[in-house]
């Protein structure tokens, strides 16, 4: 069985020292090993941004796509070969601005894949503009007077879109993050894991210390029941979205692959696709 080391490669990430993304990379590598995967069984599909580079830093099949489109690409991969474990990943701009439409619909579709958002409340790669996750009043290169748009709550959006797995974590909490990614991979449906991942270069407000002060870990509430949708929504609102842990899971709803008529367990990519003369004749007969 592969250890987390086998999910490492020899590429040195071009992230700034101290960037939150490093820990997310490590957590994915550990979680993949912990659930018993081999590198070739994992496909990591990422978007564009500092965060999007992650698909090149994990020893697995990696697909670095285009800005905002990691999810549709990842869904295509999963539909083609449901035997693969598919992780989609990218920044908050990637998933909640340019790719927001895909995020909502991927949640609704509920294919069995895990989406890890590296949420730094800013655009890193393009050097510091506002993101839909930026707080109101947040000053960036593109909002010199402070952001005047309301902050997007991806957790509430996910809940209202019918998400079957919603979690949030903090890149410093490697243990919790690894565990949540493992649970996300094992969840049979779409799992959203939003991860606070500080950008040490362009975001001087939402720093490691700031997160430590402002987030609450759901472990503090022993009675919290992540299968209760109303309670989950309430908790998200009560904490203004600043909570970590498994927020909601619905294991009753089947994944998309299980609901598609005629879809087999064997990966479609492995199936024989040549049709027989008889099958062909039947198709043609309808046009006579």
């Amino acid at each position: 069985m592969a250890t987390f080391k086998e999910f490492r490669n020899n590429v040195k990430p071009n992230w700034c020292p101290g960037c939150g993304d490093f820990s997310i990379q490590a957590a994915i590598q550990r979680a993949a090993a912990n659930v018993g995967l081999e590198p070739e069984q994992l496909a990591v599909v990422s978007g564009i941004g500092c965060s999007g580079r992650i698909s090149g830093y994990i020893n697995a099949y990696g697909f670095h796509g285009i800005h905002g489109r990691a999810l549709p690409i990842a869904q295509g991969v999963k539909l083609a070969n449901r035997e693969l474990t598919v992780i989609a990943s990218g920044g908050d701009g990637d998933g909640f601005a340019i790719g927001m439409g895909h995020t909502v619909h991927a949640i609704r579709r509920n294919l069995n894949l895990t989406y890890i958002v590296m949420d730094n409340q800013i655009y890193g790669l393009t050097k510091g503009q506002t993101s839909p996750r930026s707080a109101e009043g947040f000053k960036t290169k593109s909002t010199p007077e402070g952001s005047i748009e309301s902050t997007l709550s991806p957790l509430e959006i996910a809940m209202s879109a019918g998400a079957t797995f919603v979690a949030q974590s903090f890149s410093s909490d490697l243990k919790q993050l690894t565990s949540l990614i493992e649970q996300g991979i094992k969840h049979e449906g779409f799992s959203l894991i939003n991860v606070f991942s500080p950008c040490v270069t362009f975001n001087k407000i939402n720093t490691y210390d700031w997160f430590k002060e402002n987030i609450v870990n759901l472990e503090q509430f022993p009675d919290y029941d992540p299968t209760n949708r109303v309670a989950a929504m309430n908790k998200i609102m009560e904490t203004n979205g600043m909570l970590t842990g498994l927020i909601y899971q619905n294991t009753a709803r089947k994944s998309y692959e299980d609901l598609v008529a005629g879809f087999k367990q064997e990966g479609l990519a492995k199936q024989n696709v040549k049709i027989t003369q008889d099958e062909f004749d039947k198709l043609v007969a309808e046009f006579k």
Partner: peptide
């Protein structure tokens, strides 16, 4: 397509349609 093990996904837009097709072709279908 369901008779042949496949399916059609009506996506949210054409960007999703084409990128999903790219992902699926990459994975071999």
């Amino acid at each position: 397509l369901p008779k042949f093990g496949g399916t059609v996904v009506q996506t949210e837009d054409e960007i999703a349609a084409v990128t999903m097709a790219i992902g699926a072709n990459y994975a071999g279908v």
